[in-house]
Amino acid sequence: MPTTPRGTPHTEIAAYLRQLIEDGALQPGQQLPSMREMREQFNASPGTVNRAFQLLKTEGLTYAKAGVGTVIAERPRVAATGAARLKRLETTGNPFAPGESSADHRARLTSLADPYLAENLGVEPHDEVVLRTRTYLRAGEPTVVALSCIHPRALESMPELLEPGPSERFWQEIYTERTGKEISRSPERRTARLASDGELQMLGVQAPPNAAVPVLVLVNVFHDEDGPIEVWEDVYTPGYWQIEGERP
């Protein structure tokens, strides 16, 4: 039986198929595996498989096509989560979902004014931290602004963190190789807040100056043996949603 996130039987099947869709193993227009295949693969009842299929339809990931069956839907308003990118990097060596790319990579030392981020990173408000930002795009359209706040102690072994542009390897892997310190991630959290003018500009959102634009934000916190080392914030373009994340 495939390894899937823990949950009820129908959510486990849905999670397995959802991952295939997210990784590009199942492409838009392609037929979903048959109910019989899923019953045999998961040793599940017809009702359980049917509930899984209905869940995917409810999420807008599949639809019924006359004369064909259940097929994968186009998903122009879906963006991957940070946790999904890490899983994809581990399993495929590629962090991008099908049709996804990144741009506008920036890096600098900055004063961290956000008390929430400062608390999660284990620094005082207005302490200097490394801030790396980038924009993820799907089919050329901005979907997520990713902000990485990195504890300044990481610069001792990773001075290249201040270099703009994408890195060839995930910086945490290099950090572990150089220091021997393993990095772990806390469960991904979801919240909402108002987007800054800079974030709206990076997302290509046209709004009046100082307009209150609420956005979905996913937060990942990373630790090594010395404490918090990095905090991610993934800020979603209004109208986008995510399908891949951790389940309880």
Rank of each mutant, 00 (worst) to 15 (best):
25 A>T: 11
38 M>Y: 08
162 L>D: 03
117 L>C: 13
182 E>F: 07
102 S>Y: 04
180 G>A: 02
172 Q>Y: 02
98 P>G: 10
27 Q>C: 13
29 G>F: 07
193 R>S: 09
18 R>L: 14
211 A>I: 04
37 E>W: 10
127 D>I: 12
236 Y>T: 06
84 A>R: 11
212 A>P: 13
148 S>R: 14
197 D>Y: 01
33 P>N: 13
49 V>C: 02
59 E>R: 07
69 G>T: 05
149 C>Q: 13
121 L>K: 04
196 S>N: 13
35 M>R: 06
152 P>H: 00
213 V>F: 00
239 G>F: 03
173 E>I: 10
53 F>E: 04
103 A>F: 07
169 R>N: 12
211 A>E: 06
104 D>S: 04
60 G>V: 04
72 I>T: 08
103 A>C: 12
69 G>Y: 09
192 A>V: 14
235 V>P: 14
71 V>N: 14
8 T>K: 08
244 E>M: 06
151 H>M: 00
210 N>W: 08
232 W>F: 11
149 C>R: 10
184 S>Q: 05
186 S>T: 15
227 G>S: 13
75 R>W: 08
137 L>D: 00
100 E>H: 03
82 G>E: 02
66 A>C: 00
2 P>N: 11
102 S>P: 12
12 E>H: 09
59 E>N: 06
76 P>I: 05
55 L>F: 08
202 M>I: 07
41 Q>C: 02
8 T>I: 01
104 D>P: 07
213 V>A: 00
185 R>G: 13
128 E>I: 01
229 I>W: 13
80 A>S: 03
67 G>S: 11
96 F>N: 03
141 E>S: 02
45 S>P: 14
116 Y>A: 11
136 Y>D: 08
15 A>S: 11
107 A>V: 04
186 S>C: 13
40 E>S: 14
141 E>G: 00
109 L>P: 01
88 R>V: 09
111 S>A: 15
94 N>K: 10
51 R>W: 04
143 T>F: 02
231 V>K: 10
140 G>E: 01
192 A>L: 09
155 L>G: 00
16 Y>Q: 06
224 D>R: 01
6 R>V: 12
130 V>D: 00
171 W>T: 00
101 S>A: 14
185 R>E: 15
151 H>Q: 09
39 R>D: 04
15 A>E: 06
5 P>H: 07
109 L>G: 06
184 S>E: 06
43 N>Q: 15
129 V>R: 08
102 S>V: 05
74 E>S: 15
90 E>S: 11
107 A>Q: 05
224 D>Y: 07
164 P>A: 10
46 P>Y: 09
163 E>A: 08
22 E>I: 00
